[in-house]
């Protein structure tokens, strides 16, 4: 078994190419249990591709990924979700024509133990687990301030609510590690501030490990304990926010404009 102080998620030099484009090169990362980290980089740096590699959407050409000691490459996305790695999508991918509540309940299904036959016969275990899912989904919606809107179609939610619903849905899979792809994109400063509070809260309340991609530098620098910077598919810097902000390579990557880093690089 893995020693208790070993990183929960351990990524070692994964790479992937799309045709001639080497989108991610030798990417490595270690996330300690309960850590809150950021992944930043200019547009097209390969951040989302890293998430897609971690969650099984793409298979790495080389490298290893281990979650709590278990090797992930080769597993299908739903198996990785079972293993405890959940994510949100940069281009929101909710279930638009289902209710807000059902969006979250669907993500509860993977922990259910009753069978399809049990569901059709309305077995006691089925009813019990359905109740549990309802309760759990509503608790999560409550945390994200969406419980009042649970009967609305996901498609009808305002943008910010859709982003939060994505996080609530990912949380419903009971993950060990959650990957948030630009959770604050499209939010106003007020919403962004509240989001930072929410991320902190779920991290503590659910003893969660968080890795997030974000272009809002204020948000990232304020929230994350350590930051990895990606440029042209490669890690160019890694460290605490203060060091990253001063790192000349990072400043150069962001168009050689130090002001942009301090003032927040626009998305």
């Amino acid at each position: 078994m893995t020693p208790p102080d070993a990183p929960l998620l351990e990524v070692a030099s994964i790479s992937i190419s799309f045709g001639g484009l080497r989108a991610v090169r030798e990417f490595s990362l270690a996330l300690g249990r309960g850590s809150l980290s950021g992944l930043i980089g200019p547009n097209g740096a390969g951040k989302t591709t890293v998430f897609n590699l971690l969650t099984g959407v793409y298979q790495p050409d080389a490298g290893t990924i281990r979650l709590a000691g278990r090797s992930l490459p080769g597993l299908r996305p739903h198996e990785i979700a079972h293993a405890g790695l959940a994510r949100t999508f940069q281009n929101i991918r909710l279930f638009p024509d289902l209710s807000v509540l059902d969006n979250v309940r669907i993500a509860c299904h993977l922990r259910a133990r009753h069978t399809l036959a049990g569901a059709l016969l309305r077995s006691p275990l089925h009813l019990l687990e359905e109740r549990g899912m309802l309760r759990r989904a509503r608790e999560l919606l409550g945390i994200f301030g969406l419980d009042d809107r649970r009967d609305e179609y996901a498609r009808n939610l305002p943008y910010g609510d859709q982003r939060r619903l994505e996080i609530a849905r990912a949380m419903a899979t009971e993950p060990k590690v959650i990957l948030l792809d630009e959770p604050a994109a499209g939010m106003n400063p007020q919403e962004t501030r509240e989001l930072a509070g929410l991320v902190r809260r779920i991290r503590t309340d659910f003893s969660l490990t968080v890795l997030l991609i974000e272009h809002d530098m204020g948000f990232v620098m304020d929230l994350c304990e350590s930051i990895t910077v990606l440029d042209y598919g490669q890690v160019i810097a890694h460290g605490p926010p203060a060091a990253i902000q001063r790192d000349p390579k990072v400043i150069e990557a962001y168009l050689g404009a130090p002001a942009a880093v301090e003032g927040g690089v626009p998305a």
Partner: peptide
Amino acid sequence: SYGRAFLSIREDEVAAEAMG
């Protein structure tokens, strides 16, 4: 729960898979 899982495929296959 099973029925909702069926519906999720119709709604967004990638997201359904990511949700387990």
